[in-house]
Each structure stands twice: as structure tokens, then as C-alpha cells.
């Protein structure tokens, strides 16, 4: 358990850094790092397959997407950077304090919900669950991927033509 607490702690730290850091590029890298730590947590919670997905899609694909978007925007000049830093600090300084105070208060409260846990599942194989029991979800994945393709066609391609 203590190892898990340390991993969770680094998870929160990575998320905090993602939000607080000044440069957008570092923010995108921080997001990838957060995803990678999340996939370690998933792995430790007996969910290896989902962890692989998280690592490859969120940490890989989405980070590439963010970084390529950021590289399309213009970099700021030195003076603008200084201006921007001061202004950001004014808005974001509160967050670490909120996080610390909230963390301490929540760890003092001990909530133990009275719940009758359901019986463990009978089918233990992810492949069986996904392909046999949840076919609607697989269908939904195909449909939303198609929607995404049309989104790219409409939002990216038509503009180039114009």
C-alpha cells in the first residue's frame, strides 16, 4: 500500500506541474507523464490491458496531437514571456495551497461508506467481456471513430481547399 501511496502522490504532483508550468509544451509533456503514471497505477490495480491502452493512446497519441497543435502557434518574444509569467502567477498561485489544504482535510476525514459489495464477476476475461457481452460498445467505438474521421475531413481538410 505504501508504494501505491507514493505513486499516487507523484501522480498528483505531475498533474499539478502540468497545470502550473508556464510553457505550453512542458504542459503537454506533463500530461503525457501524468498518463504514464496513471497507467502504472492501473497496472497495479490488476488492469494491465487498459493500462496498455492508456499508455499508447493517451500518453502517445494525444500528446503528439497537443504538441503538433502547439508547434503551429507562434512563439512569444522575450518581453511577452516575462509579462505572461507575472500575469499567470497572479492567477495560479492559489492552486497549490488549495491542493495542500484539501489534501490534509480530506485525509483527516475517514469516510467508510456502508455498502454491500456485489458478487465478483463470473467472466474474468476482458476479451470475452468486450466482444461477447458488450457488443454495443464495440459498435459505438466504430461509429465514434467514423465521426472523428468526418470531423477531421470537415474541420481540417475543407479549410486547406479554401
Amino acid at each position: 500500500m505504501s508504494v501505491d501511496i507514493i505513486i499516487l502522490f507523484t501522480f498528483i504532483m505531475a498533474a499539478l506541474w502540468t497545470v502550473m508550468t508556464r510553457s505550453l509544451l512542458r504542459s503537454a509533456i506533463g500530461l503525457a507523464l501524468t498518463s504514464a503514471i496513471l497507467s502504472i497505477i492501473m497496472f497495479r490495480l490488476n488492469s494491465p490491458l487498459a493500462a496498455v491502452f492508456e499508455l499508447s493512446v493517451c500518453s502517445g497519441l494525444i500528446s503528439v496531437l497537443f504538441i503538433s497543435t502547439i508547434s503551429l502557434t507562434h512563439p512569444l518574444t522575450q518581453k511577452e514571456v516575462l509579462e505572461h509569467m507575472r500575469e499567470r502567477l497572479a492567477r495560479f498561485w492559489l492552486l497549490p495551497f488549495i491542493v495542500i489544504v484539501l489534501g490534509i482535510t480530506l485525509s483527516l476525514i475517514d469516510i467508510r461508506p456502508v455498502i454491500k459489495l456485489p458478487l465478483p464477476e463470473t467472466v474474468k476475461d476482458v476479451r470475452v467481456v468486450l466482444w461477447n457481452l458488450r457488443q454495443v460498445d464495440v459498435m459505438g467505438q466504430i461509429i465514434i471513430l467514423l465521426t472523428g474521421v468526418f470531423g477531421v475531413v470537415i474541420l481540417f481538410k475543407e479549410r486547406v481547399k479554401k
Partner: peptide
Amino acid sequence: GHEALAQSLVITLIVIEAV
């Protein structure tokens, strides 16, 4: 103890998130 169900939900969720 429903890891298989949770994993299949998360896989779908990740695909949707990317789109």
C-alpha cells in the same frame, strides 16, 4: 472484483476521449 468489466469500459472510454 469486476476488473474485466472495468477494463472494457476504460478501453472504450479512451477511444472516445481521443476522438
